[in-house]
Amino acid sequence: MLDTTTIPLAVLLFPGGLFALAFGLALKGLDRRVAARLQGRVGPPLAQPFFDLVKLARKRTMVPDIAAEPVFLGTPLIGAVSMLLAAALVPIPGVYAPNPLLGDLLVLLYLLAVPAVVLMIAGSASGSPFGAIGFSREMALMLAYEGPLVLVVAAVALRVGSFSLSDIVAYQQTHGAFLFDPVMWPALLAFLAFYPANLGIVPFDIPEAETEVLEGPLLEYSGPALGLFKMMSALKAVVVLGLGVALFLPLAPDGPAGLAVHLAKLVVLMLVGVTLLRVSMGRMRIDQAFAFFLKWPLALSVLSLAIVALA
C-alpha cells in the first residue's frame, strides 16, 4: 500500500480534491445518461455535469434581499470543503489509506452530516418559504437516516474492533469481505437504504422535490454558489459510495489495478443503487419516508449490532 501521500495532496488532488470531483461529476453524468436511456430518452452528454459547473462558475450569484448574506454565501463553501476533507478520509483499498492524523471513521461520520446541515441552514438563510419547508423536511429525513448509519458503522467497527477505516479494510482483506458474511447482511441492507436517502434521490429527494417545493433550499441559489452545492453533491456521491465499498467489499489488488477495481465498484453501486432505484419508483412523502426508515433500516441496523455483539 502506498502511504506516502501527504495530507494537503490527499485533500486537494488525490484521492480527494480534483480526482474525486471529476469522478463524482462523471458518475452524475453517467447516472443521467443511463436513466435517460432507461426512460427511452437520448439524455445529456456524459460531460453535462462538467458543462453545468463551468456555466455556473461564469455566472453571477444573486443574493435575495431578505437573505442573511454571510450565511447564504458561506454555507455552500462549508459544504464543499467538508466533502473535500471527507473524500480524503475514504480509503481506496490497495491504493490509498488515509493518514491517521486526518481522522478516522468517526470524523467521517460527522463530515457526512455536514451537507444536510448546510442545506438546512442555507434553506432558512435564503428567506424563502420553500427553503423553510426544505429545512424541516431535510431535518426529518436526516433524523431518520442518521440513526441507522451510525448503528451500521458501529456494527462494522465492533466486528473489526477498530474505528479506523484502514483497519476495517485490512481486517476484511485477511478475513474475507463482509459482503459475503451473513452476520453482516442486516447491516448491508440498512446501508443500501441509507445511501439513496443521503444522496437525495427519488424516492428520498423529498427536501428538494422539484414539483413540490421547487428544489427547496436550493431555490434561491444561482451562479458559483449553486455550483459549490453541485460540487458538494458530486463529492458526496464518491464519499458515500466509497464508504460503502470500504465497509463491505474492500477486496482489490494493489496498484493501478486496485484503483480501476475501486472505480468500477463505485460505478456499479451508482447504477444499481441510484439510477435503477430512481427510475423505478416515485417520490415518498416525508412522513412515509420517516416511517420507512424507522421501520426497516433502523430495525435492521439494531439487529445487526445485536448479532455482531453476540457473535
Binding site: 436513466a35 432507461l38 426512460q39 427511452g40 430518452r41 427519488v202 424516492p203 429527494d205 422535490a209 414539483t211 430512481r278 427510475v279 423505478s280 419508483m281 416515485g282 417520490r283
Partner: peptide, 16 residues
C-alpha cells in the same frame, strides 16, 4: 400525475 409524484419513467412511458 406520474411526473408530480416524481415517477419520471412512468411519465415518459405514458407520454410515449
Amino acid at each position: 400525475l406520474a411526473h408530480l409524484v416524481g415517477f419520471e419513467s412512468l411519465f415518459m412511458h405514458v407520454m410515449e
